[in-house]
C-alpha cells in the first residue's frame, strides 16, 4: 500500500508541476474572449446615471436585437435603457439585475424568452462578473463551475498561443455594436440567415421561471414599479417546435395578477422571414415595427397624451 501511495503522490506532484507550467505559459497568450457580455458595464452605467423615473427593458437577446429604445422613449417620454444581452444569463440573474437597477416610479418592461432557464449558463454569468464584479450578487457562486471555466480559458489561451489575430470577436455578437441605450445594431441592414437557430430543449415539467417572474412582479408592486410584459417575438419555426411547452408557459404566466400584458401572445408569433438569425432575433425592420407597437400600447396603458 505504501508503494501505491508513494506512486500516487509522485504522480500528483508531476501533474501539478506540468499544469502550473502550462498555466504560466498561457498567461503570455494574447488571446481574448468574445466581449459581447461585457456590454453589461455600459448598460449599468446608463441605468444608474438616470436621475428621474426611467424605463428598463428586461430580458435576453430578443430585446437586444428586437427593441429600438429610442422609439419607446419618444412614446412614453421617459429615458429607456435596454438591459438585454442573452437569455443564457438565466432568469434569476436577469431579474435580480433589474431589481438592483429599478427604483420607485420606474417602469419595467419584461420580455423574458420562453426557453430561458432559471439558472442559465454559468459561463455567461462568470463573464458578466469578470466585467462588472457587482453582478456576483445576482447569482449563487459555484466553485466547481468557476474552476472548470478557468481551466477552459487556460486551454483556449494555449490553443491560440501563437495566433496573430488576438481576439475571438464576432461581427454580430460584439460589444461595439450596442448603441447608447443598449440596443444591438450589428444586424442592421444585413440579410437574414437562410436557417434560423432554434436550439434549446425546454424542461417540460418545470416552470420555476414563471414562479421567479411572479416573485419579481410582487417586488415591483411593493416598490411602486409599474410592470409590463411584452411577449417575446417568436418565429413560426420556434412555435412549431416548442408550441406545447410555450402554450403552457404563457397560460401560467397569464395567471400572474400584478403584470399588465402588452398585446396578445398570438400576434407575437411571426413568420420566419421576420427574423435575422434565431427564432427570437428580429430583423431591423421588424424591430422598428415591434417597438412602435410596444410604444403605442404603453402610451395608452399609461394614459399619456
Amino acid at each position: 500500500m505504501k508503494d501505491l501511495l508513494k506512486k500516487a503522490v509522485i504522480f500528483f506532484v508531476c501533474f501539478c508541476l506540468v499544469y502550473g507550467a502550462l498555466y504560466f505559459i498561457s498567461l503570455n497568450s494574447k488571446y481574448e474572449q468574445n466581449d459581447y457580455i461585457t456590454a453589461i458595464v455600459e448598460k449599468h452605467q446608463r441605468a444608474e446615471a438616470m436621475k428621474g423615473p426611467k424605463a428598463l427593458v428586461i430580458a435576453g437577446s430578443n430585446i437586444a436585437f428586437g427593441i429600438d429604445s429610442e422609439i419607446i422613449e419618444d412614446s412614453i417620454g421617459m429615458p429607456v435603457t435596454n438591459l438585454g444581452l442573452t437569455g443564457g444569463l438565466g432568469a434569476e440573474f436577469i431579474l435580480n439585475e433589474a431589481k438592483a437597477l429599478l427604483k420607485p416610479n420606474d417602469i419595467a418592461i419584461l420580455s423574458l424568452e420562453y426557453l430561458v432557464t432559471l439558472e442559465g449558463d454559468y459561463q455567461n454569468k462568470y463573464k458578466a462578473k469578470e466585467a462588472l464584479p457587482g453582478t456576483a450578487a445576482y447569482f449563487s457562486k459555484d466553485l466547481n463551475a468557476e474552476l472548470i471555466i478557468a481551466n477552459y480559458n487556460m486551454r483556449n489561451r494555449l490553443i491560440h498561443f501563437g495566433d496573430k489575430s488576438t481576439s475571438n470577436k464576432s461581427p454580430i455578437y460584439n460589444k461595439t455594436y450596442f448603441n447608447e441605450r443598449g440596443d444591438l445594431t450589428s444586424h442592421h441592414g444585413k440579410a437574414p440567415l437562410d436557417k434560423l437557430i432554434s436550439t434549446g430543449i425546454p424542461n417540460y415539467n418545470n416552470f420555476d421561471v414563471v414562479d421567479c417572474i411572479e416573485a419579481f412582479s410582487k417586488y415591483c408592486k411593493q416598490n411602486n414599479i409599474k410592470l409590463f410584459y411584452a411577449y417575446p417575438s417568436l418565429a413560426d419555426l420556434g412555435y412549431a417546435k416548442y408550441g406545447s411547452y410555450i402554450d403552457r408557459f404563457v397560460s401560467k404566466l397569464s395567471k400572474i395578477n400584478d403584470i399588465e400584458f402588452i398585446g396578445d401572445f398570438r400576434s407575437s408569433v411571426q413568420p420566419d422571414s421576420c427574423f435575422y438569425d434565431s427564432i427570437f432575433h428580429l430583423t431591423e425592420n421588424e424591430k422598428v415595427k415591434r417597438s412602435r407597437k410596444i410604444g403605442a400600447a404603453l402610451k395608452k396603458m399609461l394614459q399619456l397624451n
Binding site: C14, V18, Y19, D121
Partner: peptide, 20 residues
C-alpha cells in the same frame, strides 16, 4: 505508464467544456 496516465488526465482536463 505514468506518461500514458498523464496524457489521459490532460486530455480530460482540456476536453472539459464550461457547459457540462
Amino acid at each position: 505508464r505514468f506518461l500514458i496516465y498523464m496524457i489521459l488526465v490532460f486530455t480530460i482536463l482540456f476536453s472539459v467544456q464550461p457547459k457540462q
